[in-house]
Nucleic acid binder design. Structure first.
Lengths: 172, 172
DNA sequence: CCGTTATGTCAGTTATATTGACATATTAAT
DNA sequence: ATTAATATGTCAATATAACTGACATAACGG
């Protein structure tokens, strides 16, 4: 199946094949990437949504609910269940905004940070190993391609961080 | 937030930051990647699972149920609902195996191929654009990193296709 | 004061997956 | 030939996680 001889003589097939491999890479990588954290989450009776909330609140301390919803792209009702659970169990804190007292600004507690570290440990290891094995140049390419795949609004979240080229350099 | 000066003097922070960016790239890319196909699937009252089944059966004509389950990593009951729906509506065909008549070998009908093309059109475009904009070298790096992130069993699915280096070369 | 915004919540629904138990047909092993 | 194991399918109950819609409160901005 998909014999090389066919590929060689048919650049269109080759390109098509290449694209479909890209699709599958994304599928498998995402699944493998999330698999272990999912197991850990079960022990807390949490789901992937909890992980995402903790991750993005940890990365954006003081974020308000609207902005978090914009990142997660879920309904406020969905977030509510997850978030109130995390607050109730002491992983996330809500503080009333100072300029705008309607807002609830979210931060992760120390307990929350600890959980975040646990949850992401395997993920960071996976990425770190993949980066190390692939080498600096490959990592640069990986980022380029991934960024190129993002929709405009999501890409904007990275622009600030990528342009100042503090990160493009090393990844030893 | 995340000021460059801090990054420059603290390689550990930089590395950590880099890994977390990788995590988010994967999250956003996967979501943006699947967003449009999801919309189309709604029109058929199908879900992402249907897309996956069609994709992998299309890529592996004559695959049996067990192997498909191994790829999808879902229960046979879950697959059953999706698959029987696809068979009932004429997107997928089942044929009794010849060597082993217990098996149901799955193939995509012409109608199924058509749906697959529709569903993946946007995804292929996304990848194609990202590849083109990033360049051949970046694509090579992207693949290396993605492959490096896969678990052993998933990586094995690509080994055959990657080692014969019919694909590493061009991506014009 | 009033329209809008940020947030929260109640209720009902839908989609999708899971587990467990069991059934059928077929193959493979003794 | 009988029997154990395999490939597949199905019924039923449950779980999860999202959704929509409606409504409520508090605070902002003019």
């Amino acid at each position: 199946m998909a014999d090389i001889s066919t590929r060689k003589v048919n650049p269109l097939f080759l390109r098509e094949e290449e694209l479909r491999q890209g699709m599958e890479l994304l599928f498998y990588a995402y699944r493998d990437f999330t698999a272990e954290a999912d197991l850990l989450l079960e022990q807390y009776n949490f789901g992937r949504a909890h992980h995402r909330v903790i991750h993005f609140v940890s990365r954006n301390p003081g974020i308000n609910v609207s902005d978090l919803l914009a990142i997660l792209q879920i309904t406020k009702q969905s977030l509510s269940r997850v978030l109130s659970q995390l607050v109730r169990e002491g992983f996330i804190e809500q503080k009333t905004g100072v300029q705008d007292r309607r807002q609830r600004l979210l931060t992760v507690t120390e307990k929350g940070e600890e959980l975040e570290r646990k949850l992401s440990e395997n993920q960071r290891t996976l990425i770190a190993n993949a980066y190390r094995e692939a080498g600096a140049e490959a990592v640069e390419g990986f980022r380029k391609v991934m960024l190129g795949m993002l929709g405009a609004s999501d890409r904007a979240r990275f622009d600030d961080e990528f342009l100042p080229n503090g990160l493009r350099r090393r990844q030893g």
